[in-house]
């Protein structure tokens, strides 16, 4: 299986469009949103400056891009082309394909997180303790698994033609509703009430709790755990259905 991970990775690193959108795009977006923002003014109700706040949002966004895009579209297309069938004629265990996809996406999502941090620290002078940088990297990276599972589920749900629009709608929906592009505190109240239950909101909230040096909200952890269970369960079910049908 390591060989497949290696090849998936080679291929991901070769795909400039994918690399641009998952590694550079979040940093560019960060500069666009937080570039002219004051480094002292706080985002209401958070105690964090806009650059500090947006740094976590964009790092989460970058990781989301890498794992969601990396999984859903490739899986749907390769199911259609018959590559998935061909792989089933090898010694590779059934789960191996999905695990290799997720592992290679995770390798790409790590630099997308780190690049946003580096840009935020150098350009906007964001300063945190060493443990906070490490904990942020770890939690955003680990949290991206929730969306990797969602990517797998979409990949097994959608056909090759439909996968891109479905992924895009999910991706933008999650990014905007979860407050990755702008703080949810700027939303009207009714939208804030919805955003509370969106997994990307809980995902970014974990990172912001680390920046605020406090324990994460139980609610956010529960929301993430429930969605992780839902997405992996759904992905496993769809995978099995596809395997029996193929």
């Amino acid at each position: 299986m390591n060989d497949l991970i290696k090849l998936e990775l080679t291929r991901a690193l070769r795909n400039r469009k994918f690399l641009f959108f998952s590694v550079l795009y979040p940093s560019i977006l960060f500069l666009l949103i937080a570039g002219s923002a004051s480094t002292t003014e706080k985002v209401s109700g958070t105690g964090l400056t806009l650059p500090t706040y947006m740094m976590v949002s964009m790092a989460s966004f970058g990781a989301l891009t890498a794992v969601l895009m990396g999984n859903s579209e490739r899986i749907a297309k390769e199911r259609e082309s018959g590559w998935v069938r061909q792989l089933r004629l090898t010694t590779l265990p059934g789960r191996g394909y999905v695990l290799a996809k997720t592992a290679s996406a995770a390798v790409v999502s790590l630099p997308s997180i780190v690049v946003v941090f580096a840009v935020a620290a150098t350009v906007k002078g964001v300063r945190l303790d060493a443990w906070q940088w490490l904990a942020l990297t770890g939690s955003i990276w680990a949290g991206s698994l929730v969306f990797a599972a969602l990517g797998v589920a979409i990949g097994y749900l959608a056909t090759g033609d439909a996968v891109r629009p479905i992924t895009m709608i999910t991706y933008f929906g999650l990014s905007i509703l979860g407050g990755l592009w702008m703080p949810t505190t700027t939303f009207p109240q009714w939208l804030q009430d919805i955003a509370r239950w969106v997994p990307t909101h809980a995902y970014a909230a974990l990172g912001q709790a680390i920046e605020q040096s406090r324990a994460p909200h139980i609610e956010d952890i529960v929301v993430l755990a429930v969605f992780f269970a839902l997405f992996t369960g759904g992905a496993a079910w769809l995978y099995r259905k596809d395997t029996l049908k193929a």
């Binding site: 090849l7 291929r11 069938r85 010694t91 590779l92």
Partner: peptide
């Protein structure tokens, strides 16, 4: 397989190497 697709964006050698490794 007649319907056996191939992984794209990789070279022929890389793909065959994967098959050998598996």
């Amino acid at each position: 397989l007649q319907s056996g697709g191939l992984m794209d964006e990789v070279t022929v050698a890389e793909l065959v190497k994967l098959a050998c490794a598996l």
